[in-house]
Nucleic acid binder design. Structure first.
Length: 390
RNA sequence: GCCGGGUUGGGGUAGCUUGGUUAUCCUGUGGGACUGUGGAUCCCUCGACUCGGGUUCAAAUCUCGGACCCGGCCCCA
């Protein structure tokens, strides 16, 4: 994931494990405290273990990076904490990987971020996942045009997001909407499918989404759908929103969520449009496991194996030389017998062993054993590095 | 906040219903057989009943309470 983000020109940041509680209530509302590890420190300050990383990342941006060149592209990977009842795919401590692109609201920036999220999934080898893209502006505009005030809209959107249509309809009626308009809103919520379904709407949101799809096409990303029902709860989302699901996971199947938003003004900075995503790292791992993913076996290039006490010093010289040269090297530290050391070298998947014994030293040489083929070569001490680098 | 299941060496487990001698097996650790050659085999070693109360001559086993873990709801930035 890190490598892919770096390939896209994002740079890694790291922020503190805890922050002022206010940072999170500013972003997500006062009620989130119930679901946060929030407490007072010895100085009586209200602090919290971070429940997510977007707010810390944006705080970091406002505090330290607000005058850097735009767009600013950063990513992060770290643990987060939520005080919730754990269940499958939901832990009180979990890892989040995410990226934020700061300073441009255009469709190409949105597409860049989605392309990164999708490329990460491709890179790590996840086979089954879907991407759904929506636009908050579509429903917001419809509600605004129907005369729904800014205080009623968020609740309606929330109900629509959960597909609780009866409640949503009731609230829309309460806000003075007629049945025809309500029906239209619900119809839009259920608009799911390929790009062509965008023909059902018009305006800026449509153009914006079409712009995103054009770029994604260039990446060959095709497991992607329009879903105008993706609303993603909170107010600070300003436009495009997207989610990724891994169907193998069942109830907790969302592995990634993101969109464009504006938070900096809440944290004392200038209003800045950003777009980003967060990947539920643990869930993604679970999904990979369910698909039969085999983690790569750890191995090491060379295991240096002194025979007897007289050669230990030289063995350390060799290990130091190989390590300086960038060859991953391990060495016997316990003074074990040749046989035991071989067994150990086998256990740590050493590709080759360098046997440093009196016999070899007498000729100014060492023995290099290929642990896969079993082939052994007597190599002059001064030619060892070149031999191993081949 | 509600509900269900669970907790035995480092990992995986048997034993619990029907209380009773040294708590089973696999794996792992360290050593040896084997200070000059790994993956095998054999031997030795290390290492556990979640905590507290109760019942009992006797508790891993029955009982009550707590902690923690797993899972299902609620919620999910």
């Amino acid at each position: 994931m890190r490598r892919e983000a770096a390939l896209f020109g994002f740079r890694e940041i790291a922020t503190p494990i805890f922050e002022h509680t206010e940072l999170f209530t500013l972003r997500s509302g006062p009620n989130v405290v119930e679901e946060i590890y929030a407490f007072q420190d010895k100085g009586g300050r209200d602090i919290s273990l971070r429940p997510e990383l977007t707010a810390p990342a944006m705080r970091f941006f406002v505090n330290e990076l607000s005058s850097s060149a735009r767009p600013l592209k950063m990513f992060y990977f770290g643990q987060c904490f939520r005080y919730e009842r754990p269940q499958s795919g939901r832990f009180r401590e979990f890892f989040q990987f995410g990226a934020e692109l700061i300073g441009d609201p255009g469709p190409e920036s949105d597409a860049e971020v989605i392309a990164l999220a999708a490329s990460i999934m491709r890179r790590i080898g996840l086979k089954q996942y879907t991407i759904r893209i929506g636009h908050i502006g579509v429903l917001r505009n419809m509600l605004a045009e129907a005369g729904v005030g800014p205080e009623a809209a968020p609740l309606i959107l929330q109900k629509l997001d959960k597909k609780e249509y009866e409640e949503a309809s009731q609230r829309m009626r309460d806000a003075g909407m007629d049945d025809e308009r309500i029906g239209k809103v619900i119809d839009i919520t259920n608009t799911v499918g390929p790009v062509e379904v965008l023909d059902k709407i018009s305006g800026d949101a449509r153009e914006h989404l079409l712009g995103i799809f054009r770029v994604l096409q260039a990446y060959g990303i095709d497991n992607i759908q329009v879903d105008l029902g993706v609303v993603r709860g909170l107010d600070y989302y300003t436009g495009m929103v997207f989610e990724m699901d891994a169907p193998v996971l069942g109830a907790e199947k969302q592995i990634c969520g993101g969109g464009s938003y504006s938070l900096t003004e809440l944290f004392g900075g200038e209003k800045t449009f950003s777009t980003g995503f967060g990947i539920g790292f643990d869930r993604t791992l679970l999904a990979l496991e369910k698909e039969g993913y085999q983690a790569p076996v750890h191995s090491i290039d060379v295991y240096v194996l002194p025979v007897g006490d007289s050669t230990r010093q030289e063995a350390h010289h060799i290990a130091a030389q190989l390590r300086r040269a960038g060859i991953s090297t391990d060495i016997d530290l316990m003074g074990r017998s040749l046989s035991k050391s071989m067994k150990y070298a086998n256990g740590i998947n050493a590709r080759r062993t360098v046997i440093v014994g009196d016999k070899e030293m007498a000729q100014g040489s060492v023995t290099v054993r290929d642990m896969v083929t079993g082939e052994q070569t007597l190599v002059k001490r001064e030619e060892l590095l070149t031999f191993l680098e081949k």
